[in-house]
Write a protein that binds this DNA or RNA. Structure first.
Lengths: 226, 226
DNA sequence: ACAAAAGTGTTGGCGCTACACCCATGT
DNA sequence: ACATGGGTGTAGCGCCAACACTTTTGT
């Protein structure tokens, strides 16, 4: 950074937009949106976002956006990663603004009616990322694509991210399903198993997966070594 | 992005900082800095940076920083990639500011006295990135580390980036030297040759490397297809 | 109730590619 | 000296086949 001697004000606004991502065996990979409370696009579903506060850290702004716009408490946020800064004249009709985007891996139960949040929190909904039928306002579709690309290129390389997505205990099927959701193609089950077996960060959990599947041999459950 | 109904001003300033990177056989991998013209840290070497102009795109701000602070013309910029947004209260003693950092691969001859720029451009100097003996102000050391990490993880995966670093024609030794500079360890010359030979984006150039090495078999020269 | 079928996951083998490491050859 | 070209061994992954465990279906 640097500056001319007199700081130029009238700079673009700094916005923080967050892509809440969750994964669970039953529901798959999902992205949360919440209806906008202010103009423009009032009532439309959009990513939770806020304007950066004067002395606020970027990551703190992301957490505030999750809390105030989507009702996702900080305790439900398992992982937070910056995606990048987005600009462009088309991204906001009001005034020029740049957006620093984050991807947030949150607990799957933290969204939707009956979730674990406060009673009066804004209602947010999970949606499947691929067929985002109703296009999102601003450049939020671009941001979601970038966030998913970020996750896709880091799965199994970034262990904290992977752990946040899969949770503390998960089955081989869960891992395969996550990979399928991210890459679009199902991995070979044999290779998936070998990878899980030889991964030094994982140990087999004896728990035989309480929930009964609809037929078939129950998958092995895994846990993370501490 | 989004916002409260009344836009909160007094937001942090938006700065653009650029890490100019170049690679050449003789000089290796280098990063350019320029002496600061304004307070704070007047006269100290730092990354070229500007405050984002009201209606300016982020990438345009990066090019303007290169031009006005380091004398690197847009024609000398071969590649421009965003690294991310940096914040933190310690990064600027004057006022809170965030910085959107870029890595710019520039022509090695575009910096230093006798370079290809204008006559009155600010003087910038190349430096080896590793032993940044004189610590840079702000969080510029962090930004340089992030930029080099960005390059390290994308070399040979991001073809435009690799092409910008190596140039249009290069030798096998150049490729090995670049890899050594990025990873710290020299790759096996046999594997490097195999990788170059089997890379469909490369073709052998007949030019037998005009500059005579100091003894030894001259390396093969390569060019990019199309 | 019992057996067969269908569904799902695990384990192992085979072949290809990539890479670390080595050595002989070319200039 | 220095680079090229080739060889060997290991790790990873795509692909395939056999086996194990569970639920569903048929009689």
């Amino acid at each position: 950074m640097t500056g001319a001697p007199t700081a130029a004000r009238d700079q673009p606004l700094i916005a923080i937009d967050v892509v809440p991502v969750s994964f669970a065996a039953g529901s798959g990979l999902r992205v949360a949106t919440a209806p906008r409370q202010y103009a423009p696009y009032v009532g439309q579903e959009a990513l939770p976002g806020v304007l950066l506060a004067p002395a606020e850290r970027l990551a703190d702004g992301a957490r505030r956006a999750l809390r105030s716009k989507a009702g996702i408490d900080a305790a439900a946020v398992r992982h937070l990663a910056q995606i990048g800064a987005f600009d462009g004249p088309e991204r906001d009709p009001r005034s020029t603004a740049i957006s620093v985007a984050f991807a947030a891996v949150v607990d799957p139960s933290a969204v939707g009616p009956g979730g674990g949040g406060a009673v009066d929190r804004p209602s947010s909904v999970w949606r499947l990322p691929d067929q985002g039928e109703p296009r999102l306002p601003f450049d939020h579709d671009t941001i979601i694509r970038a966030a998913l690309e970020h996750v896709r290129t880091r799965i199994w390389r970034d262990l904290p991210l992977t752990r946040a997505l899969l949770g503390e205990v998960f089955t081989s099927s869960d891992a395969a399903q996550l990979q399928t959701a991210l890459t679009g193609t199902a991995p070979d089950p044999g290779n998936t198993n070998r990878a899980l077996r030889t991964n030094p960060a994982l140990v087999r959990a004896d728990a035989p997966s309480s929930v009964a599947g609809r037929g078939g041999r129950p998958p092995v459950t895994w846990t993370w070594v501490d």
